[in-house]
Protein backbone atom coordinates (compact mmCIF):
# COMPACT_ATOMS: atom_id res chain seq x y z
CA UNK A 1 0.00 0.00 0.00
CA UNK A 2 1.52 3.28 -1.07
CA UNK A 3 0.37 6.68 0.10
CA UNK A 4 -0.31 9.53 -2.26
CA UNK A 5 2.54 11.91 -2.94
CA UNK A 6 0.82 15.11 -1.85
CA UNK A 7 -0.22 13.81 1.54
CA UNK A 8 3.14 12.42 2.64
CA UNK A 9 5.40 14.82 4.48
CA UNK A 10 2.91 17.66 4.65
CA UNK A 11 3.78 20.82 6.52
CA UNK A 12 2.37 21.53 9.97
CA UNK A 13 -1.08 23.12 9.92
CA UNK A 14 -3.45 24.90 12.28
CA UNK A 15 -4.75 21.76 13.94
CA UNK A 16 -1.18 20.71 14.78
CA UNK A 17 -0.59 24.00 16.56
CA UNK A 18 -3.83 23.62 18.46
CA UNK A 19 -2.92 20.10 19.59
CA UNK A 20 0.47 21.47 20.62
CA UNK A 21 -1.11 24.25 22.64
CA UNK A 22 -3.41 21.86 24.48
CA UNK A 23 -0.41 19.74 25.43
CA UNK A 24 1.36 22.89 26.57
CA UNK A 25 -1.66 23.73 28.71
CA UNK A 26 -1.52 20.23 30.22
CA UNK A 27 2.05 20.88 31.29
CA UNK A 28 0.96 24.24 32.72
CA UNK A 29 -1.70 22.47 34.77
CA UNK A 30 1.01 20.23 36.24
CA UNK A 31 3.13 23.31 36.88
CA UNK A 32 0.42 25.00 38.95
CA UNK A 33 -0.77 21.63 40.24
CA UNK A 34 2.46 21.23 42.19
CA UNK A 35 1.82 24.58 43.89
CA UNK A 36 -1.75 23.59 44.75
CA UNK A 37 -0.43 20.32 46.15
CA UNK A 38 2.13 22.13 48.31
CA UNK A 39 -0.57 24.54 49.46
CA UNK A 40 -2.94 21.69 50.37
CA UNK A 41 -0.44 19.73 52.43
CA UNK A 42 0.72 22.85 54.26
CA UNK A 43 -2.86 23.91 54.95
CA UNK A 44 -3.69 20.46 56.35
CA UNK A 45 -0.73 20.89 58.70
CA UNK A 46 -1.72 24.45 59.70
CA UNK A 47 -5.52 24.81 59.37
CA UNK A 48 -5.98 27.60 61.91
CA UNK A 49 -2.95 29.62 60.80
CA UNK A 50 -4.15 29.48 57.19
CA UNK A 51 -7.64 30.66 58.20
CA UNK A 52 -6.21 33.55 60.23
CA UNK A 53 -3.67 34.52 57.58
CA UNK A 54 -6.30 34.48 54.86
CA UNK A 55 -8.21 37.10 56.82
CA UNK A 56 -5.25 39.47 56.31
CA UNK A 57 -5.71 39.43 52.54
CA UNK A 58 -7.74 42.20 50.94
CA UNK A 59 -11.07 40.57 50.10
CA UNK A 60 -12.38 43.60 48.21
CA UNK A 61 -9.36 43.96 45.92
CA UNK A 62 -9.19 40.20 45.39
CA UNK A 63 -12.88 40.03 44.47
CA UNK A 64 -12.69 43.03 42.15
CA UNK A 65 -9.73 41.40 40.46
CA UNK A 66 -11.65 38.16 40.04
CA UNK A 67 -14.46 40.10 38.40
CA UNK A 68 -12.00 41.98 36.16
CA UNK A 69 -10.23 38.82 35.03
CA UNK A 70 -13.39 36.80 34.39
CA UNK A 71 -14.76 39.69 32.34
CA UNK A 72 -11.54 39.79 30.34
CA UNK A 73 -12.05 36.11 29.55
CA UNK A 74 -15.45 36.96 28.10
CA UNK A 75 -14.06 39.77 25.93
CA UNK A 76 -11.21 37.50 24.81
CA UNK A 77 -13.57 34.73 23.77
CA UNK A 78 -15.76 37.23 21.94
CA UNK A 79 -12.69 38.72 20.21
CA UNK A 80 -11.66 35.34 18.82
CA UNK A 81 -15.25 34.56 17.81
CA UNK A 82 -15.68 37.95 16.12
CA UNK A 83 -12.56 37.51 14.07
CA UNK A 84 -13.68 34.09 12.90
CA UNK A 85 -17.00 35.61 11.85
CA UNK A 86 -15.17 38.34 9.93
CA UNK A 87 -15.99 41.24 12.26
CA UNK A 88 -12.49 42.66 12.31
CA UNK A 89 -13.25 46.00 13.97
CA UNK A 90 -15.26 44.37 16.74
CA UNK A 91 -12.40 41.97 17.26
CA UNK A 92 -9.92 44.84 17.60
CA UNK A 93 -12.12 46.60 20.14
CA UNK A 94 -12.64 43.42 22.16
CA UNK A 95 -8.93 42.63 22.13
CA UNK A 96 -8.21 46.16 23.33
CA UNK A 97 -10.76 45.70 26.10
CA UNK A 98 -9.16 42.40 27.11
CA UNK A 99 -5.74 44.03 27.16
CA UNK A 100 -7.06 46.92 29.26
CA UNK A 101 -8.72 44.55 31.74
CA UNK A 102 -5.54 42.51 31.98
CA UNK A 103 -3.52 45.62 32.70
CA UNK A 104 -6.13 46.71 35.25
CA UNK A 105 -5.84 43.33 36.97
CA UNK A 106 -2.08 43.65 37.12
CA UNK A 107 -2.32 47.24 38.43
CA UNK A 108 -4.71 46.21 41.21
CA UNK A 109 -2.51 43.23 42.02
CA UNK A 110 0.55 45.50 42.26
CA UNK A 111 -1.34 47.89 44.52
CA UNK A 112 -2.34 44.91 46.65
CA UNK A 113 1.28 43.78 46.88
CA UNK A 114 2.14 47.32 47.91
CA UNK A 115 -0.44 47.19 50.73
CA UNK A 116 0.85 43.75 51.76
CA UNK A 117 4.38 45.07 52.00
CA UNK A 118 3.21 48.13 53.96
CA UNK A 119 1.35 45.89 56.43
CA UNK A 120 4.41 43.63 56.88
CA UNK A 121 2.79 40.57 55.36
CA UNK A 122 5.88 39.59 53.39
CA UNK A 123 6.97 36.37 55.07
CA UNK A 124 10.70 37.07 54.83
CA UNK A 125 11.91 39.93 56.99
CA UNK A 126 9.78 41.78 59.53
CA UNK A 127 6.51 39.83 59.69
CA UNK A 128 3.37 41.41 61.20
CA UNK A 129 2.12 38.30 62.98
CA UNK A 130 3.85 36.87 66.01
CA UNK A 131 2.95 34.14 68.45
CA UNK A 132 2.09 30.49 68.15
CA UNK A 133 0.59 30.58 64.66
CA UNK A 134 3.20 32.90 63.12
CA UNK A 135 5.07 30.02 61.45
CA UNK A 136 1.96 28.76 59.69
CA UNK A 137 0.91 32.26 58.69
CA UNK A 138 4.32 32.90 57.18
CA UNK A 139 3.88 29.72 55.14
CA UNK A 140 0.47 30.93 53.97
CA UNK A 141 1.96 34.19 52.74
CA UNK A 142 4.88 32.33 51.22
CA UNK A 143 2.42 30.32 49.13
CA UNK A 144 0.35 33.43 48.51
CA UNK A 145 3.29 35.27 46.97
CA UNK A 146 4.61 32.28 45.03
CA UNK A 147 1.20 31.38 43.58
CA UNK A 148 -0.03 34.87 42.75
CA UNK A 149 3.49 35.68 41.50
CA UNK A 150 3.51 32.68 39.15
CA UNK A 151 0.03 33.67 38.02
CA UNK A 152 1.09 37.28 37.44
CA UNK A 153 4.06 36.16 35.34
CA UNK A 154 1.73 34.08 33.18
CA UNK A 155 -0.65 37.02 32.91
CA UNK A 156 2.18 39.35 31.87
CA UNK A 157 3.23 36.91 29.15
CA UNK A 158 -0.42 36.84 28.11
CA UNK A 159 -0.49 40.64 27.87
CA UNK A 160 2.51 40.49 25.53
CA UNK A 161 0.75 37.91 23.37
CA UNK A 162 -2.45 39.98 23.37
CA UNK A 163 -0.55 43.08 22.22
CA UNK A 164 0.86 41.16 19.26
CA UNK A 165 -2.63 39.86 18.45
CA UNK A 166 -4.12 43.34 18.70
CA UNK A 167 -1.60 44.81 16.27
CA UNK A 168 -1.95 41.77 14.02
CA UNK A 169 -5.73 41.99 13.79
CA UNK A 170 -5.69 45.78 13.38
CA UNK A 171 -3.21 45.52 10.49
CA UNK A 172 -5.04 42.63 8.89
CA UNK A 173 -2.31 40.03 9.49
CA UNK A 174 -4.86 37.88 11.28
CA UNK A 175 -8.11 37.65 9.42
CA UNK A 176 -11.27 35.61 9.13
CA UNK A 177 -9.33 32.95 7.21
CA UNK A 178 -6.25 33.21 9.37
CA UNK A 179 -7.59 33.42 12.91
CA UNK A 180 -5.63 30.55 14.43
CA UNK A 181 -3.13 32.65 16.39
CA UNK A 182 -5.89 34.65 18.06
CA UNK A 183 -7.74 31.49 19.02
CA UNK A 184 -4.62 29.99 20.54
CA UNK A 185 -4.06 33.22 22.48
CA UNK A 186 -7.63 32.91 23.74
CA UNK A 187 -6.95 29.36 24.92
CA UNK A 188 -3.89 30.52 26.82
CA UNK A 189 -5.83 33.42 28.32
CA UNK A 190 -8.46 30.95 29.48
CA UNK A 191 -5.76 29.08 31.40
CA UNK A 192 -4.68 32.29 33.16
CA UNK A 193 -8.31 32.89 34.03
CA UNK A 194 -8.92 29.32 35.21
CA UNK A 195 -5.93 29.39 37.53
CA UNK A 196 -7.41 32.48 39.21
CA UNK A 197 -10.73 30.67 39.66
CA UNK A 198 -8.85 28.32 41.98
CA UNK A 199 -6.48 30.85 43.53
CA UNK A 200 -9.23 33.27 44.53
CA UNK A 201 -11.11 30.97 46.95
CA UNK A 202 -8.07 29.25 48.45
CA UNK A 203 -6.27 32.52 49.16
CA UNK A 204 -9.05 34.99 49.94
CA UNK A 205 -11.96 32.90 51.21
CA UNK A 206 -10.42 30.37 53.59
CA UNK A 207 -12.38 31.38 56.64
CA UNK A 208 -14.43 34.52 56.33
CA UNK A 209 -16.88 34.97 59.19
Amino acid sequence: MSASAEAVGRRANDTDSEVGLWIFLASEVMFFGLLFYGYTITRINHPQAFADASAHTDLLLGSVNAFVLFTSSLTMALAARSLRLGAQRASVRLLAATLALGILFLAIKCYEYHVDIESHLVPWGDFAVSGRLAGGERLFFFMYFVMTGAHAIHLTVGLGVLSVMLVGVARGTYTEQNSQAVELAALYWALVDTVWIFLYPILYLVHRP
Binding site: I41, T42, N45, R138, L139, M143
Partner: peptide, 12 residues
Amino acid sequence: GLGIFDATLGGD
Protein backbone atom coordinates in the same frame (compact mmCIF):
# COMPACT_ATOMS: atom_id res chain seq x y z
CA GLY B 1 15.36 31.40 54.69
CA LEU B 2 11.81 30.17 54.94
CA GLY B 3 9.60 27.72 53.19
CA ILE B 4 7.34 24.79 53.16
CA PHE B 5 10.14 22.18 53.35
CA ASP B 6 11.69 23.31 56.64
CA ALA B 7 10.41 21.51 59.73
CA THR B 8 11.71 24.18 62.11
CA LEU B 9 9.52 26.73 60.32
CA GLY B 10 6.42 24.57 60.20
CA GLY B 11 7.17 23.02 56.83
CA ASP B 12 7.69 19.38 55.91
